[in-house]
Amino acid sequence: MRKSRIQARRERMYFVWGTVLLLVVALIAAAAIYLQFTRSSEVDKTTLCPKSGPIGHVVLLVDKTDPLNFTQKQAFQALLEEIITQKVAPGELLSVFVLGEDYTASAIPLIELCNPGDGRGKSELTANVNRLKRQFEQQFRGPMLALANELQSQQPAKFSPVLEMIQLASINGFRARSAGGPHTLVLVSDMLHNTASFSMYKGDYDYKHFLESPYGRKMNTDLAGVEVELHYLLNTPNLQTRRHLKFWEEYFSNAGARIVSVRPLEG
């Protein structure tokens, strides 16, 4: 009898401690879920970037010194959507620059925002998926797509300072932000630099000769580790030859970058 009472008492104690242990584990799990949920929303309210900083940086530089034709406009709209939804990963920063005739008037980005993520791949247990999707659409994708008209012109410009704008995209884009991870420069342009100091319309694509000139030395910039994607506007195909592309390959290589893709924009 006495042994039975002692055994019963032990069993009750085991049950009580087991229940306490289960409660402790449940509280720890709940705290972990809460912390994960909280961290998922820890972004800067202005830039939508993680408070620890962007995990990558995409700089988009769009040339608007020549009007787009109808087909080019459709292709550009599709490209812009592709960049916003596929090229910029959640947590990465997208900086948008425009190349106009007066590069001093467009020295800073038109807009800079991080992709906050749209909730895909997230669990309802650890993230507010609906809030993330709404934030992505209203605060990132929407404002970026609204720029489409600002990135296009109606009249051709007299000058096209491509080299100056690449310098500014480096200085006020990549170097102005402490972003970790990959750095990508996406260029939408015919890449036919044209200023009083140097014009590619004269057919001079000798990069070594250019680099040895005073203007060429001034146009040096630092794009170390940057991957470059060219989306060619084929406005003057007779000038946009293999020699023309070779000039830019050597230019970016000298700046520490490399061209990873060349894609003509339809039209």
Rank of each mutant, 00 (worst) to 15 (best):
T47W: 07
V162C: 03
M144A: 05
E250F: 13
E150I: 00
I171F: 06
I55D: 15
A78P: 01
S261D: 01
D102M: 05
H209R: 15
H231G: 01
F210K: 07
G100W: 02
Q135I: 12
R217S: 07
K51T: 11
M144N: 02
K122L: 15
I111D: 01
K133T: 11
T38G: 04
L110H: 04
L234T: 09
G181I: 01
A179R: 06
A224M: 09
N130C: 02
G121S: 06
S199V: 07
S40N: 12
D102W: 03
E249P: 00
G267P: 12
E229Q: 15
S199Y: 10
L145A: 06
F159V: 00
L132W: 08
T184S: 05
I33F: 12
N115G: 06
I166D: 02
G256L: 12
R10Y: 07
P90V: 05
E137W: 05
R134F: 11
I33K: 14
L68F: 15
E212M: 10
T85I: 08
R131I: 04
A78G: 04
R2L: 15
S197W: 10
A26L: 13
I166C: 01
G142I: 01
A75V: 05
R217L: 03
L27N: 08
H209M: 08
I111Q: 12
Y207S: 06
Q135S: 13
Q167N: 11
C49L: 00
Q74C: 03
M13C: 04
T85R: 05
I83T: 02
Y207Q: 03
T104V: 09
Q72I: 03
G142L: 06
M191E: 02
A75I: 10
F76E: 02
A146K: 14
Q154Y: 12
L163Y: 04
M200R: 12
S261N: 07
F70W: 14
M200V: 00
A8W: 05
A179K: 09
K158W: 08
V16F: 14
F247C: 02
S178F: 06
Q72T: 05
Y205Q: 07
L79V: 04
G216D: 12
N194T: 02
L23F: 13
A26Y: 02
L132F: 13
L79P: 00
V16S: 03
L223Q: 08
T19V: 09
S199D: 10
D63Q: 07
K64G: 03
Y34Q: 14
G225F: 08
S52P: 12
V25E: 02
P67T: 06
A30V: 11
R141N: 14
R12E: 09
G18D: 09
N172Q: 10
A157D: 10
T195A: 07
K246W: 08
Q72K: 01
Y34I: 12
H209K: 15
Q138F: 02
M191T: 08
A8Q: 07
N172P: 04
T236E: 11
G225P: 11
V98D: 03
S213N: 07
I6Y: 02
S123N: 09
R2G: 15
E124R: 15
A196D: 15
N149H: 09
G267C: 05
I171H: 12
V262I: 14
A75Y: 05
L185G: 01
K208Y: 05
H183C: 00
E150Y: 10
G256V: 11
